[in-house]
Computed example of a mutant assay.
Amino acid sequence: MNDLTTSLSFAASGMEAQAMRLRLVSENIANADTPGYHRKVIRFDAAMETGLVEAGPVQLDRSDLIRVYDPGHPLADANGYYDGSNVDMVIEIADAREAQRSYEANLRLFDQARQMTQSLFELLRR
């Protein structure tokens, strides 16, 4: 029984981590046109003592911001440039798909462990 509850815990921690990743991806996509916006990234680690997935701190991607030429923009400097964001939509869409697939895999694992637990309880009732 302990192995089944451990499986449920692993799957739940993976789902929680991927949900957080998906939230950050959606924030990045929503702010892709915000001047000066640095995309948010997160790293996941497996906790050594429990084996659960743990999300690290949210960090800002420190890659260079895109310089946009728009002399009429209120943030433009004397040369007509301002700093855009460093969000790449192709990367964000790929991250979203990867997070979705990882979430679905953890969901299937969670569902299988739940079904096995339910079957075990039915056997014990007999």
Rank of each mutant, 00 (worst) to 15 (best):
L120A: 14
F121K: 13
I29Y: 05
N106G: 08
Q18G: 05
M89T: 09
N2E: 12
I93A: 08
Q118V: 13
A32Y: 04
V68H: 05
I42M: 10
V87T: 01
I29E: 02
D70K: 04
N79W: 06
L107H: 10
D3L: 10
R125Y: 08
N79H: 10
D64M: 12
A11R: 00
S63K: 00
A46L: 10
D95G: 01
V68D: 01
Y69T: 07
D70T: 12
G84L: 07
A55V: 02
V53K: 03
V87Y: 03
P57C: 03
E54P: 07
L4V: 10
G51A: 06
T50Q: 06
R67W: 13
A46S: 11
I66Q: 15
L120N: 11
H38L: 06
V41A: 08
D61H: 05
Q59E: 15
A99K: 02
K40G: 07
D45M: 06
V90H: 11
L60F: 10
G84R: 10
V87N: 02
E16H: 05
E104A: 09
M116P: 09
V90M: 10
D111F: 03
L4P: 09
F110S: 02
L107G: 07
T50H: 08
P71T: 01
T5M: 14
E16S: 15
S7T: 14
A46Q: 13
R67E: 14
D3M: 12
L22Q: 04
E49V: 10
L120P: 02
G84H: 12
A32H: 05
I29P: 00
A30M: 04
G56L: 01
G80P: 05
I42W: 09
A47S: 14
A94M: 14
A99E: 03
L60E: 12
I29F: 09
N79D: 13
A94I: 12
L24K: 07
E16T: 14
Q59N: 11
